[in-house]
Every structure is written in structure tokens, then in C-alpha cells.
Design a protein around this nucleic acid. Structure first.
Lengths: 346, 346
DNA sequence: ATTCTTTTGTAAAACGTTTTACTAAATCGT
DNA sequence: ACGATTTAGTAAAACGTTTTACAAAAGAAT
């Protein structure tokens, strides 16, 4: 019952044509070297017997694996898994496969994963780097063995490839929307992090409230407390310490979920007492009572840019190439949680 | 700057020891063949220079890729991505990598994916088969080229490997819980599908209501309408047609999400007017108002069984082995949405 | 001292490609 | 008709392993 795989050698024997010729034909390098007649004959035979090249042999010979690694912060996070799924779709069509993994925002783990996949000779890394990973990225890039594409966060000083959201303007427009809704005291709930996305989001918020309220109000939670009870406690204390807060901008969906639980526990009315907006859309937010206004990331566009950029870089790997840098705009999806004004904005 | 990979040949030259000997040592086949002294020398050198075998060469020679494919229905579904993440963790430690992909419950696509990964010589498939896939699975198994493990759904008549939830008893206990809550008319919202999990869940429901209400009440939505407006419309009509319904069991989290939207639109009070339970836990359900009672699947256990089972089968591939079959119990997590009784059950 | 084992090791083929360097035949320009 | 060029094709090395079959040296048994 075992299906025997057919090799170039088999074709060669069967057709009485040399291995070299067949390889040229398979790799579309036959034009001008081999007669159309022979090309046709070989192509037809390949079609007929369903020959597929052995990828290990190809890799061994060429050093290319046609594999891209996507190292997300957490592949089970809906945002990352949505991006992953879209990427897989596109990569698949281009003959590439994707391997996913999660850094858990753990530097050591991320380093191990990079080392593991370097051993496996992947062609490219798409990475959401964990905290304090700049040097590691620097190293990885300078080795020049793989294409390195950063996602979601970038480094200002590195001349590298990245695809990120326009975090600054996203946060700014979300905050400005809250201001238009007559919020007087808008607070920002962010991650205690040096991620560019976090710094930019906070920057956008700061800019928007600069001429609006006496001083910005921000809470920065450490990564490990985003989902924890400790995080809830810290957030609860923050809200209690600032009773005048009537508008909230959460920097991530994780923060929002825990934050919404706290607001529920505190029995705060949304949006009457506190208007709420968060980054990243999830079906959860649409179903929430009240439905949560979000600044959603353009998942299909992000995925497309990530893969197309990576594939482009893989193709042009030889000479110096300009870095692939894309900053994509988010979209404010207005739902009930931010509609504070009785006279709605048109 | 490019780091040059070191090969066995390099070690051989450097140490003046034959390639064969080194290979034996690397593969722990040196005992009794090679002196302890030489073994130590080689191992130390390998450690020192950080040699890692080239996996393509190994694959080319052995035909084994140390790769497992996880074909989920939809890898961006939180349930599947949670399982995927856990699996990756375990597989990674065992030196295996996992490739994920989504069938989208599309038979043609699933067949293409299988063919693609067979070409890439993966060692094992973990599959949630799409609709009408039994023959394809049959074929795949009989080819005996890869280990085949089914997940989430199984085929009664096939003597195959699987890891599934105890769907029957899960649905039964959820329904019985609704009965205890004094629900008089309990409806089941399922998928119009021949998946074993769907049939078993419906079976559990049917059994539970058999002696309770005049007749079972069930709505079966086609797969493509789970998330669609059409699905919402069908569900809305169903609810309107059966105004006496005061208890609902959703067979999947996707059905529940769309269903909850409809209940919100119809302004049905949960649980006062309709008590609700759904399969599969998600953070969304905890945050929902009211929080939704769920029958949750033991994600870590499922992932562990899937990988351990697969690895075990990979090891013992030679002779006939008993199929690896696990049925894991779910857990009813009681929240507000099902608490209909004023006098709560103790 | 010869044969028989055991110990310790190695040579070389094979896995299935890609690619360089080559050749034979055909065509061309004059 | 002659060398030059183009066309059509191939032989063989290389990628880095694993593994079979063999061999030399040392020790044991006769």
C-alpha cells in the first residue's frame, strides 16, 4: 500500500534523458538550453506520474528551506493568531510554509527559539521581539543568514525591516474622540514596557490630552500582571485613587479585558460614568454590554505586508536592499462604550 | 559576519577521526564500538564548537523530518489555537516542530494540504477532519507513511487514533443542569454536520431531555452560517417560533456568540427568560453580562494526549500497534447565565 | 604459533537534488 | 569549405548525513 516516491533518477531512466536536463526543466532554466520537444515530453511525464521534488534534497543542496518562522508574543492571542492565519494563506500560495511559536515575552526563550530555527535553516524570521531584545535582533540581522522582519514593534535606531500599526495616530485619534465626547479626565492604561508600540500609543495619548486636561493620567502595568489578579488590584486602586476619571484608553485587548472585569466589579456605568476605548478588536468587545469601541488593527493588511515584504526580501537577498518598512493605519470602530454625549456627534 | 556552519567533516578533519565514528557518537550508537576515550573527546569538541547536525541531510538520509502537522479546522479559533500552543510547547521539548494550518472545514483544501505536507515528508498528521473526510482519512492511514491522529472528531467504524472530548456526557450533564434549574423547554443549537462531536453532543442532549419535555427541540445550522447574518436570522426565527424556550445549549462557542447577539437583539433576559450554556470556554464568556456557563474542554490535557500519543506512535511505528484512543471529560463551569432557580442548588 | 574473538575503528555508498564545466552536433558567416 | 558560434544536452561533484560492510589490532583460547 505504501506509495513509492518517484525521483528525478526514475524519470531519467524511464525517459532516457539525463538528470541534469530534467532538473533544468523542473526549475524553469531550460529555455534556450533544451529543445521545446524534450521540455514538453518531460513536463508531461512529470504531470502524469505526479512527481514532486524531495524538499530535503533541495534544501541540502541549496540551503533554502522555503520556511518562514513567525515568532509571536503569544500565538494563542486572538490578534496574533488571526495574523498568523492570514499569513499562512498567502505564504502557502507562494510555496512557503510557516512555523509558529510563542516567545511568551521571555527573552531567554526567544533566544532559544531563534537558535533552534537557525539550526533548522529557516529562510526568514518574522518576530515580535520580547522585552530587551534589541541586541539579539541586531545580532540576528548582522549574521545575514535569514531575512529578519519585525512585527508590531520596532527599534528606532536600527535600520531594519518592520510592519507596524500607526500606534501614535491611533492612540491620538481615539483620545481625541473621547475628548469630543466631553470626557474631562481621560486616563491611559498601558504596559510597563519599552516596546515601541507602547511608547507610541502613550505618546499619541499624551499629545491629545496635552491641551485638554490639567495633566495626563496613566497607569503602566508590568507584562506579567496583565491577566493576573494583581493586575486587577492595581487597576482598581488606580481607579479609586482618581475618582474623576470619566474616560479610559486601554493600550491592549488584554488590559481591556481585565480592566472591564474591574469596572464591572466596581459597578461603574459604561459609558455614562466612564467612557471606554481599547486597542485591538475582538468579537468579545462587540458582544460586551455595552459594546466596546475599539481601535482595530488591519489584520489582513498587516499579514499581507508581512509576507509580501518577507518574500520580496527573500528574492532580492543578494545586493544591499532598502529596508522594508510599513506603518499601517488603524481604524476607530465606534460602539456604545464611548458614546458619552447625549447629543451625538454626527 | 556570516557564521559558517560546522559539519561532521570539519570535526573529522580537526580531530583526525573518521566521519563514521563521529556519527555513531552523535547518535548514541557508539557504546561497545568506540572507546570511551574517543567518545569523550568528540563529545567535548562538539560541545565546544556548538555543532548541530544539518537536519535536511538527516532527513534526506533517514526520511524522517521530526515534524508534525496540526491541521485544525481554524487555527485562529481560540480553542484550536490554545491547543496548538500547548502542543508546540511539549513537542518542542521532544525535538519536534509543529506546522499549523487551517482546513476551513473545506474538504478540497484539506486534501491539498495533506498532499503538500506529504511532499514535505512530515512524520505525523494531527487532524480535525472537515465534513465528509472519512475516505480521505482512510486512505491516509492505509498508506502508512505517517502517523495519523484525529482530534475533536472521530469515526466510529475506523480503527484509528484519536483524542476527543467526552461530548456525550458533557452535553448530557449540561442539559441535566438546565433541567435542575427548572427549565421546561430546553433547546439545542447545533451544527448541521456529521462530525462525531456534533452527533454525540446532540445525543447527550436528547438523552437528558427524553423524560423531561414533550419533545426535543433542536436547530442545526450549516457550518458556513455559524458566523453569518443568515445564521442569526435562522436562529432568530427559531426562537420566535418557539416562544416557550427557557433554556439553551449551544454546541460550539461560535454558535453561542452569534446566538447571544440575537438574544441581545431580541432583548431576552438571561437567565430569567432563557438560561444559557455553551460548549467551549472563552474569556469572552466570563466577561459577558451575565457571565456564561460553559462546558469547557480540558485544553492542556487534550494537547498533552495528542502530542504524547503521537510521539509514542512515532516511536513504535514498526510493528502493529494498538490504536491510541482517548476520551477526556469536560468540565461544567457554572456562571450566571444558567442560574434560573431562585433557590440555588447546593 | 596458530586460530578465534573481541575491541575499535573506517571506507564508501546512498539519500535526491542543483550546478559547473564540458562536449557533440548543428548552424552561420565568409 | 573552414573556423566560429550557437544549440542541445550530459557527466560528475557537491550538499551533510547514516549505515552497511569490512579491517586492523589486541586478547583469549587452543
Amino acid at each position: 500500500m505504501k506509495k513509492q516516491r518517484i525521483s528525478i533518477k526514475d524519470i531519467s531512466k524511464e525517459l532516457g534523458i539525463s538528470i541534469t536536463t530534467i532538473s533544468f526543466i523542473i526549475n524553469k532554466k531550460a529555455k534556450g538550453r533544451i529543445s521545446d520537444e524534450v521540455i514538453k515530453k518531460v513536463e508531461d511525464y512529470i504531470q502524469e506520474v505526479g512527481y514532486k521534488p524531495n524538499s530535503s534534497a533541495q534544501t541540502l543542496r541549496t540551503g533554502k528551506t522555503k520556511t518562514i518562522v513567525f515568532m509571536a508574543e503569544d500565538i494563542s492571542d486572538p490578534f496574533f493568531s488571526a495574523v498568523a492565519k492570514e499569513m499562512e494563506e498567502i505564504a502557502y500560495k507562494a510555496g512557503y510554509k510557516i512555523i509558529y511559536c510563542s516567545t511568551e515575552n521571555n527573552k531567554k526563550r526567544a533566544l532559544e527559539l531563534i537558535s533552534l530555527f537557525q539550526d533548522r535553516q529557516v529562510d526568514a524570521f518574522i518576530i515580535t521581539p520580547p522585552e530587551g531584545f534589541q541586541n539579539a535582533i541586531q545580532d540576528l540581522i548582522s549574521q545575514q543568514n535569514e531575512v529578519v522582519m519585525l512585527f508590531d514593534r520596532r527599534y528606532k535606531m536600527l535600520n531594519h525591516n518592520f510592519v507596524v500599526l500607526d500606534n501614535y495616530n491611533g492612540a491620538k485619534s481615539a483620545t481625541e474622540y473621547l475628548i469630543k465626547q466631553n470626557c474631562q479626565q481621560i486616563a491611559y492604561i498601558g504596559l510597563d514596557s519599552d516596546f515601541s508600540c507602547m511608547i507610541e500609543r502613550n505618546g499619541g495619548y499624551q499629545h491629545a490630552v496635552a491641551n485638554h486636561q490639567a495633566e495626563p493620567l496613566a497607569l503602566f502595568l508590568p507584562f506579567q500582571h496583565v491577566n493576573s489578579d494583581k493586575g486587577k488590584k492595581l487597576f482598581k486602586e488606580f481607579i479609586k485613587a482618581h475618582p474623576k476619571i470619566d474616560g479610559l484608553l486601554y493600550a491592549t485587548n488584554g488590559l481591556a479585558i481585565n480592566g472591564l472585569k474591574v469596572l464591572k466589579e466596581l459597578d461603574k456605568k459604561i459609558p455614562e460614568e466612564i467612557a471606554v476605548i481599547t486597542f485591538d478588536d475582538r468579537d468579545l468587545f462587540e458582544l460586551h454590554s455595552p459594546a466596546i469601541t475599539v481601535l482595530s488593527q488591519p489584520v489582513p493588511d498587516l499579514a499581507t505586508e508581512l509576507i509580501n515584504g518577507t518574500l520580496q526580501l527573500l528574492k532580492s537577498k543578494k545586493g544591499k536592499v532598502d529596508p522594508y518598512q510599513k506603518i499601517l493605519p488603524g481604524k476607530l470602530i465606534i460602539r456604545e462604550s464611548s458614546q458619552k454625549r447625549l447629543d451625538p456627534i454626527i
